[in-house]
Design a protein around this nucleic acid. Structure first.
Lengths: 118, 118
DNA sequence: TCTACTAGTTCCGAAATTCCGAACTATGGG
DNA sequence: CCCATAGTTCGGAATTTCGGAACTAGTAGA
């Protein structure tokens, strides 16, 4: 297993963030991580709304979020702890995450809309 | 030539907007349309920054922006007039476009960052 | 009207992405 | 050591994107 890649905040690109969050499943995952006291294991997210996401897809969603600079993941025992990098991203691109998450929330998309808590 | 499709503002979905703007070329095109008094022909956008975009790609970029609800296009004589739908989108998803365009602008991406003028 | 030119669209094959099941790796317990 | 759990990687099918060539529409000139 190759080591996890986390871009430095100054290497984070807006297009990567938009691409990562342009998938409603990933946006919902990110909303959950941001909302849940900044920590969440992968397995707890396999069912979002009405859709069951297979493990391999889930794993690549996490990879996309991680490499976009939106979350930080670290192995802790058997599971993976995922923290949102909201605060860093907010400092670099003010208002971006808040606007995106509330856009999703405002049209009633599953579990979105709690970004401010970081 | 099939007629142009423009979603009603209430049918516009956040994932479509994020997807449309997650491509830097499209974001630059949208920034130009939003900045240039809300009207711009397609041909004037074939060279953005350092990259020459072929006509067929340009045409599909416009289609994506249009169907995401970001622009409105109408044929006027030989050419196409493109207006940004900023104001409508702003009313539906407050702050979204501003945050996205200034994220792009803040990392020096060609012609981005003048969204407020609509 | 016929021709030529300009602006943009459509078609379609190649290249790149995404999706997801199966096999695998890593950690912890008994 | 053997097994269970949590997640990753592989690889092929399905989908999406890119871009050249051919096409359509409007306009001007002879």
């Amino acid at each position: 297993m190759r080591p996890l890649v986390h871009p430095a905040i100054e290497d984070v690109r807006p297009e990567a963030i938009l691409h990562a969050l342009s998938d409603p499943s990933r946006a919902a995952i990110f909303a959950r991580i941001s909302g849940a006291g900044s920590v969440q294991a992968c397995a707890s997210l396999s069912a979002l709304g009405d859709r069951v996401i297979p493990k391999s897809s889930l794993s690549s969603h996490f990879k996309v979020l991680r490499e976009a600079g939106l979350i930080r993941s670290e192995r802790q025992g058997v599971e993976m702890r995922n923290h949102s990098r909201c605060a860093e991203v907010e400092a670099r691109f003010p208002g971006l995450l808040g606007a995106i998450m509330s856009a999703y929330a405002s049209q009633g998309c599953g579990t979105a809309g709690k970004t401010e808590g970081a």
